[in-house]
Structures are given as C-alpha cells and as structure tokens.
C-alpha cells in the first residue's frame, strides 16, 4: 500500500530531531520524533508500507504509526508507484508521535450565531 500527503491540507517541516506537521482542515498539529520522521519522509516520497518496513525493520511500530497517520487524515491511500529519491537516516529509533488539538476550538464555526435565509447571522436564542 502506498500513500499520498495532500499538501493542500497538510503542511510540515522537518528539523534535525523533530518534524512538525499541521492538518489545515482539523487544526490539529503533531510532533514526530525518532523514526516517525523517516517514516513520514519515506511515505511522502512514495514508498509503500512494506518498503518502509524493509528499510527500517520494525513492522509493529511502523504499522501502528501508519495507521495513526491514516486515522488522522494526514495521509490517504494511493495508487502511485513512482518514488522520489530520498536520503534519510535509516537507523531505527522507536517512532514517537504526539498530537496537539488546542487549536480545534478556533476552527469550530461560531457557536453563538445562526444564519437566516438572507445569509444574515443572528444570535441564537438563549
């Protein structure tokens, strides 16, 4: 199985020891450390889950992490088989990943107003 990162919905930046990922649709953002960074890069470059496991040699934690990426809508399954050349650290370090959802409230549509037929918002009745 290969995956795609939709860069219109997900943006990321990779530093030496941590990757920061932001889901633009949900407002959630993530910190990836250890081999989570390499997995993210390999998937983004078009490697399949099996190829990632071959590269990093730890199927259980890699499968768990990829399942997390799918669950969080950070990647979607893809038919693409073209791989981009990539240079990464292939020494396996247990993937660490953390989700932050403190921005979620900012993305909720305004809870105190509703909109009438003309498009004009009105304060909801108490």
């Amino acid at each position: 199985m290969t995956y795609t990162i939709d860069t219109n919905k997900v943006v990321s930046e990779i530093f030496n020891d941590e990757a920061v990922i932001v889901n633009l649709a949900s407002g959630a953002y993530y910190s990836f450390k250890g081999s989570a960074i390499a997995i993210w890069q390999l998937i983004g470059a078009g490697y399949s889950d099996q190829e990632v496991i071959e590269q990093l040699k730890d199927s259980e934690s890699i499968n768990q992490f990829i399942a997390f990426l799918v669950q969080e809508n950070l990647v979607t399954t893809s038919d693409v088989t073209v791989k981009e050349p990539i240079t990464i650290d292939l020494q396996f370090v247990r993937p660490e990943y953390k989700k932050y959802d403190d921005m979620k409230d900012l993305l909720l549509l305004d809870p105190i107003h509703e909109v009438d037929q003309t498009g004009w918002p009105h304060k909801k009745a108490e």
Partner: peptide, 14 residues
C-alpha cells in the same frame, strides 16, 4: 526550533 515553530505557527495560522 521545532518548539518555537509549534508555539508560533498554529496559533497564528488559525
């Protein structure tokens, strides 16, 4: 730097 990006980017973006 990652800590800084996490502290400035999402709150400014959203």
């Amino acid at each position: 730097e990652a800590e800084v990006l996490k502290s400035i980017a999402p709150t400014t973006m959203f």
